[in-house]
């Protein structure tokens, strides 16, 4: 949870100002995604490392809260809007933001982890492992990366490069998987185009 009680109350206070009560939804989601993350981490690395998974998750959650607060403040300035209840009630937004924070933690603490019981199986926990853990579409993860980098000054150059590589990988392949929300976006924009100009003659 937030680094210090004071900081936590600031976040909760600003979330309330932005139009939502964080206790019920954000905290519940952090808790339930935490169970999933720790389970998947332990499955991947071994039960002996469950505590490590838990610590990594807590670091990710702290970063998630900090970036969320900075992001909302930046949006408030940019849009001169105070109510973000629609965004704050968007489950995919929160899951993507938390996944991005966790990806940074996982990349920071190393890419592979050998099994805790000493077997040689190496498990690659680097991107896109976190997408599979939360069953998150790559394109939804992609949508938070640039804003995350914009509002989080503490990211190292290496980490920014890592996130950029994630972006490229998503745009080059992961976003084009059959169930990607990118296709819906393309369809919608085509339909919007279709409404603005005449339909093409069937011959073309």
């Amino acid at each position: 949870l937030p680094q210090t009680p004071v900081r936590g109350t600031n976040l909760i206070k600003s979330l309330k100002c932005f139009g939502m009560n964080p206790e019920d939804s954000i905290l519940k989601r952090v808790e339930s995604l935490g169970h999933i993350f720790k389970k998947k981490f332990a499955e991947a690395v071994g039960q002996g490392c469950a505590e490590i998974g838990s610590q990594r998750y807590q670091l990710g959650v702290r970063l998630y809260y900090r970036v969320m607060e900075s992001m909302l403040k930046s949006e408030e300035e940019r849009l001169s809007v105070h109510n973000f209840s629609k965004l704050l009630n968007d489950n995919i937004f929160h899951t993507s933001l938390l996944a991005c924070a966790l990806e940074i933690v996982m990349a920071t603490y190393g890419r592979t982890a050998s099994q805790s019981d000493g077997t040689s199986a190496e498990t690659d926990l680097s991107f896109p492992w976190i997408l599979n853990v939360f069953d998150l579409k790559a394109f939804d993860f992609y949508k938070v990366i640039e804003s995350f980098i914009k509002v989080e000054p503490s990211l190292t150059r290496d980490m920014i490069k890592h996130l950029e590589r994630c972006e490229h990988r998503i745009m080059e392949s992961l976003a084009w998987q059959s169930d990607s929300p990118l296709f819906d976006l393309i369809k919608q924009s085509k339909e919007r185009e279709g409404q603005t100009d005449q339909p093409e003659p069937t011959s073309t």
Binding site: S74, E75, L87, S147
Partner: peptide, 21 residues
């Protein structure tokens, strides 16, 4: 960060990307 290629245009941000504008 200088060497990150920001691609969002003016008037585009996280609210627009999640259709919450």
């Amino acid at each position: 960060p200088q060497d990150y290629h920001f691609g969002l245009e003016e008037g585009e941000g996280i609210s627009e990307l999640f259709d919450c504008d």
